[in-house]
């Protein structure tokens, strides 16, 4: 049996091939990033670049699906790489233990950046990287039961720093989060990446999806 047997009716053999030949940067490998990376590897992505300076901490285990008790204290990117390789040995995983900023040198093959970062400062840095290299950025951010997602395409959509202008000031408070919230948002981000790479369906390009899981509502705002 083929690992992608259930994907072929949806994405076609051409879509599977496109994913296999694609490279994606996952910026931040926490609540959102572990879900994005897990799904992209299971969907057949060829190459993943993972950036995160952090180590696995006990409160991470409430939602960060690639980590287990044995990973406590380990660099997240290495613990994540190990689990992703357990899923598919052939996937190429490149890891970076840097704090990502606007000077990050984007690997040449990367076609999409996924914003799974946990501060507006870092989120705005990847927004700058996306503009500099002229590639799409799939953004998500969350707080408690709530979150928002959009896909930024430089030159076609407003930039993240324009949509969320004024949020660059760091909030030192610990952001409360449930696994269901980060997992759902991460799953939508991963689907955005797959759709962008395969040219399938409509994405959140130029639209902001606001998710309220306390009220179980999903509302899309058209952006200008």
């Amino acid at each position: 049996m083929n690992l992608y047997a259930r994907h072929i009716p949806l994405l076609g053999k051409e879509g599977i091939k496109k994913l296999k030949n694609s490279s994606v940067l996952v910026a931040g490998i926490g609540g959102l990033g572990t879900v994005v990376a897990d799904i992209l590897v299971r969907t057949g992505i060829g190459e993943l670049h993972i950036v995160d300076y952090g180590e696995v901490d006990l409160p991470d285990l409430n939602r960060q699906i690639l980590y287990y008790k044995d990973d406590l204290g380990k660099k997240k990117v290495y613990a994540a790489k190990q689990k992703l390789k357990w899923i598919r040995e052939d996937v190429v995983i490149k890891t970076y233990t840097d704090y990502i900023d606007e000077n990050f040198k984007l690997p040449e093959r990367v076609r999409v950046i996924v914003d799974c970062l946990d501060s507006f400062k870092a989120k705005f840095a990847v927004d700058k990287i996306a503009v500099k290299y002229n590639i799409p950025l799939v953004h998500a951010g969350l707080n408690g039961f709530f979150g928002q997602i959009t896909t930024i395409v430089p030159g076609e959509t407003p930039r993240l720093c324009e949509i969320l202008y004024g949020m660059e000031k760091e909030n030192k408070k610990i952001i409360p989060v449930l696994g269901s919230v980060s997992t759902l948002l991460g799953a939508i981000q991963a689907l955005e990446v797959v759709k962008l790479l395969c040219g399938k369906g409509n994405t959140l390009k130029g639209k902001l999806l606001i998710v309220d899981l306390l009220d179980m509502s999903f509302e899309t705002v058209e952006l200008r």
Partner: peptide, 15 residues
């Protein structure tokens, strides 16, 4: 104040 986004027809009023 910065912290709450206000969009008018999808555009941030700061712009």
């Amino acid at each position: 104040k910065k912290g709450v986004i206000i969009l008018v027809n999808g555009k941030n009023v700061f712009h």
